[in-house]
Design a protein around this nucleic acid. Sequence first.
DNA 1: GACTTTTAGGTTGATATCAACATAATTATG
DNA 2: CATAATTATGTTGATATCAACCTAAAAGTC
Lengths: 168, 168
Amino acid sequence: MSKNVPFDTTIHVRDTCLCLHAQRAARALARRFDEALRPVGLTNGQFSLLMSLNRPHPPSVAPVARLLAMDRTTLTAALKPLERRGLVITEPDPKDRRSRLLRLSEKGHEILLAALPIWRATHAAVDAEMQEDLPEIRQGDLQAMLVALGGTGMERVNSGPRAGPEAA
Amino acid sequence: MSKNVPFDTTIHVRDTCLCLHAQRAARALARRFDEALRPVGLTNGQFSLLMSLNRPHPPSVAPVARLLAMDRTTLTAALKPLERRGLVITEPDPKDRRSRLLRLSEKGHEILLAALPIWRATHAAVDAEMQEDLPEIRQGDLQAMLVALGGTGMERVNSGPRAGPEAA
DNA sequence: GACTTTTAGGTTGATATCAACATAATTATG
DNA sequence: CATAATTATGTTGATATCAACCTAAAAGTC
């Protein structure tokens, strides 16, 4: 009886492991966006986090963690440097003493504004490259598949009153 | 002039940001596979790393890092606990004194063998769920897209002599 | 051969991630 | 009301990730 995994199994796993592929894709994209956002001093994760806080009402920890498909303790840790830098302000929720509300500071809003064109440009470039590599596959399909993998933690934040351009 | 990002921009970014979707998918899958592999004491990343070392000739650091689309310093760090646990053995490359060769130990091979059925079952389950969620989209398409995003660090390790079942 | 450039890999530091465990507050139950 | 169950969040510890910086060895150049 064999005590080793056959090599062709290794090849099979290498070629089919969704988790590995997802990790690789995530890493590569993270590096790409990290580099692009470096001039404004944000990582891709920080950009996403700040953006997730740009809403009409400050959210608490759990819904943000859910939206980012991230463990809440990860979020707690990720908030710390942002708080230290004065980009995020956390406050007790008057409605629930166990809860904390997370809010962008003035500075947080500014950085996010500065980061947005960078995100746009980087995203457009990645889109274009994808289209070039796989012209017959639609972008919407990729989004749908990633969402299927990453869960439906997409909170319906737009079900409430819209801040929209009026908040500007 | 507005000093804030409009809320509907937040919604747009939330819904279209490939990087965010990839991170979310990667996190969710990682959690899923981490949990499944816990009984054999491996994380998803460790499984992938061990599997990537299951080959006819021990590779050095750089090609493994490339295959996993990972920074080589990450790989260095990831190897440490595995070495500590005696699953991986690293040795100087006689052909290049700067290089290290990475090899699975007996124990590493055993754990990998134990992990394989778990991987198969988990992967099959994820596949089935994907098919259920998005029946009209083919799995091969997802792989192709993730590969396009994650780069082509897929080393042609099968271009050499095949270990295959004969190595057992 | 001498010197320069490139390459292989490691350390350090900071951020990113999750499980296990813990405290405190809120809700549910009788 | 008292108690039990559930919920919100944080801390700790270990692994995961990458940039900046460093040393040593190999390859390239003259």
